[in-house]
């Protein structure tokens, strides 16, 4: 039997908001360690990797490993039926055809159950090599979302340049150009507002704005985002999910032939 309970269903609601732009279906791998998902978008330009650790759940039981293929739009519809204050429980039997979502109101006077059919997916699983990145930037996630939104008005692609001075985002298009520079913040008491650059070598990479704008749908999950970059390899855009796990987006760069 598989059973995973989260008092704060809002976390799962936010996770679905964070993946539904990119994925239409995905396999949720459930084991003793927790719930993992790895899936590419339809165009195979980006990859989403989600990890929810079992010890982050309020109750977790997984008697045998399960791979559950789910329709992301359907799951998203179901989670929109939960109130943010509700507790959510995911439940499935061994060799399941369906998964059940149970939402309980705080005083347990309303209990809703939604059963969703599972789908068979033949998904390609990619091994992501351990990489030491040339630049790792931590910055406020809202600021990153704002910059992606603002710069995507100027062009389809955005260049991210990172040096020891800070991080620079730029876009160019028919209307003109846009540049946003963020300096590293000094020692600040408010870690949520900090911009921190750890740099081994300066990096300059170009990425599709459309994908970055999908990644920033994860902004409500965490006040800070971490961007890891090295020359000519995918960007990693990472959001911590409270004490339970993280979501990482990998985005293939645009490279000159």
């Amino acid at each position: 039997m598989f059973e995973a309970r989260l008092v704060q269903s809002v976390i799962l609601k936010k996770v679905l908001e964070a993946i539904k732009d990119l994925l239409t279906e995905a396999t949720f791998e459930c084991s003793d360690c927790g719930i993992q998902l790895q899936a590419m978008d339809n165009a195979h330009v980006s990859l989403v990797s989600l990890n929810l650790r079992s010890d982050g759940f309020d109750k977790y039981r997984c008697d045998r490993n399960l791979s559950m293929g789910m329709s992301v739009p359907c799951m998203s519809k179901i989670l929109r039926c939960a109130s943010s204050e509700d507790t959510v429980t995911l439940r499935a039997w061994d060799n399941p055809d369906t998964i059940v979502f149970v939402f309980e109101s705080p005083n347990r006077d309303k209990i809703s159950e939604y059963e969703m059919k599972l789908i068979n997916l033949d998904q390609e699983h990619l091994g992501i090599p351990e990489t030491l990145y040339s630049c790792v930037v931590k910055m406020p996630s809202q600021e990153f979302a704002r910059i992606c939104r603002d710069l995507s008005q100027f062009g389809d692609a955005m260049t991210i340049a990172c040096s020891k001075e800070g991080i620079k985002f730029s876009a160019a298009g028919d209307y003109g150009t846009a540049n946003v520079k963020l300096a590293q913040t000094a020692e600040t008491e408010n870690q949520e507002e900090a911009v921190v650059v750890e740099m081994k070598e300066p990096v300059k990479l170009t990425f599709s704005c459309r994908y970055l704008n999908s990644f920033v749908k994860a902004t409500p999950l965490c006040a800070q985002v971490q961007l890891s970059m090295s020359a000519e390899v995918p960007l990693v855009c990472e959001y911590q999910i409270g004490e339970i796990g993280h979501i990482r987006y990998y985005l293939a760069p645009k490279i000159d032939d």
């Binding site: 590419m40 091994g127 990998y250």
Partner: peptide, 14 residues
């Protein structure tokens, strides 16, 4: 213009 790469060019298939 730079060309968009596919993500699996960078990762190993399991």
């Amino acid at each position: 213009a730079p060309k968009q790469r596919k993500i699996r060019q960078f990762f190993v298939k399991w």
